[in-house]
Design a protein around this nucleic acid. Structure first.
Lengths: 210, 210
DNA sequence: GCAAGTTTACATTCATGTATGTATGCCTGT
DNA sequence: ACAGGCATACATACATGAATGTAAACTTGC
C-alpha cells in the first residue's frame, strides 16, 4: 500500500514523530532503532528514511513540535495595555511554563531530552540545551536588571545570581520531577516554589499573592 | 604476558575505571564499546570481562568511587563539640559539596551521569539518581523542620518546599554548569546562589555571612 | 508517465558474550 | 626451599545478532 495522498503523507510523518516520542521514552534514544519507530507507527524503515535524513534529523523534528522560548511565554502573559512589573511578568511566565510542561507531549519530549538521550550520540543534545538555556538566562537577566533599576528587586540580590537561581530551580525541579512524575504533583509544588522565591526577593512586605 | 601479581591486577582494575571515565565522557555511555575502554587502558576486552560482569557492572563500580551522600557531608562540616544551627550546617555542607564537585574525577563522573548516559540503557540511571535524590531530600527536610521548630527558618516557608528549592537549585546548577564548565566559575556563582538562598529564608536581619 | 511515497532486499559494520588458550603467580606438602 | 598443581589474570577467536544506509522494485496520485 504505497503512495498516499499528500495529506496522508503528512499524517504518516506526524505518526512517525509520535511513534518516536513513545519509543524514545521507553527505550532511550540510542537504543531505539529506526525499525522500531517505523513499526510503532505501522510503517517500515523506508518511510522513515523518506521523511527524515536519519535519526538525528528525526529527533530535531520531534523537538521542534514543543519548543517554547521564554520570550514567547513572556509575550503570552503580558498585557500590552497594562504592563506588569518585570518580576511579576517573570513569575507569571514561569508558572505558565510549568503548566505547559504538564501537557503529555511536552512532558514526554522533555523527559526524553533530560533523561533518555545522551550527549555525543547521534544527536548533539548539549548544543540544543545550551541554546535554550542561554536564551532563557539572558532574558531573565534583562528582567531582573529592570526590576533592580525600578526598585522591585531586593537590594543585595544581583540580577545575574537571581537569574541563575531561578533557572536552576526550574531546571532542577523538572529534572527531578520527570524522573518519576508520580512522586509528587508538580502543579502544586512548582508554583509554591516559584511564589516563595519571588516573594523572598521582592522588597515590599508584599500584598498577598493571589 | 598474562597473570600479574595481585597488586598489579588491582591497578589494571583502576586503570579500566579511569579509562571508562574518559571514554564515557567523550563518546557517551551507550556509544562506547568495552573494546574502546580496554584499549584506552592498554588492555583487551578479556581484562574487562575478568574484572566486571558487563558494562553496567563497570558503570556502577565507576560511580562507587565518587559517591558522597549528604549525611556524610553534614558529618564532615559538623563539629560535635559545638553544633551549628541546622540551616548553617546545611549551608556549609552544600558549599562543601559544591567544592568537591570541582575535583576532576567527581566532575567527570557527574557529567557522565547527567549528560552522557541515558535511562533504559545498559544501566538503570534513573534508579541510581532516584536513590541519591530521595536520600538527599529526606535529610534536607529533617534539617529544615528542625530549623522551623527552633525558629531559624522564616515562618511562611514550609520545610518541604524549602528542601525542594535547595535541591532543585543545586541539581539545576550542576546540570547547567556541567554542560559547559567554561561558561562561568561555579566556585564563584555557586556559593553566591547558596548564600543568597539561605540569607533570604533566615529570619533575623542576619549577621553578615563570612 | 513521471515523480512522490513506501516496501523489500542487500551489503556492511560493529558490539556482545562466551569459549578457549596460556602463561604466570601463589600455595601446599614434604 | 622448592616442585608440582591449581587458580588467576589476562588475550584471542568465534558465533551471533542487530542496526545502518542504500539501491532497487513497486504502487499509486496528479
Amino acid at each position: 500500500m504505497p503512495k498516499r495522498t499528500k495529506a496522508e503523507a503528512e499524517a504518516t510523518r506526524e505518526a512517525l514523530l509520535d511513534a518516536a516520542e513513545v519509543i524514545f521514552l521507553e527505550r532511550g534514544v540510542s537504543r531505539t532503532s529506526l525499525e522500531q519507530i517505523a513499526r510503532q507507527a505501522g510503517m517500515t524503515r523506508g518511510a522513515v528514511y523518506w521523511h527524515f535524513k536519519n535519526k538525528s534529523d528525526l529527533f530535531h523534528a520531534m523537538l521542534d513540535r514543543v519548543k517554547m522560548p521564554l520570550r514567547q511565554l513572556l509575550d503570552d502573559v503580558e498585557d500590552p495595555d497594562q504592563p506588569n512589573a518585570p518580576l511579576e511578568s517573570l513569575r507569571l511566565a514561569t508558572l505558565h511554563a510549568l503548566g505547559r510542561l504538564q501537557g503529555p507531549r511536552s512532558r514526554r519530549v522533555h523527559t526524553i531530552l533530560l533523561h533518555c538521550s545522551e550527549s555525543a550520540s547521534d544527536v548533539d543534545i548539549l548544543a540544543l540545551q545550551d541554546q535554550l538555556a542561554c536564551d532563557c538566562y539572558e532574558t531573565m537577566v534583562e528582567r531582573f536588571e529592570e526590576a533592580r533599576d525600578t526598585g522591585t528587586l531586593i537590594d543585595n540580590v544581583e540580577p545575574e545570581i537571581a537569574s541563575r537561581m531561578l533557572m536552576s530551580m526550574i531546571l532542577g525541579l523538572l529534572h527531578d520531577w520527570l524522573r518519576d512524575p508520580e512522586r509528587y504533583d508538580i502543579g502544586d509544588v512548582g508554583p509554591r516554589m516559584i511564589n516563595t522565591f519571588f516573594e523572598r526577593i521582592t522588597p515590599t512586605p508584599a500584598k498577598p499573592l493571589d
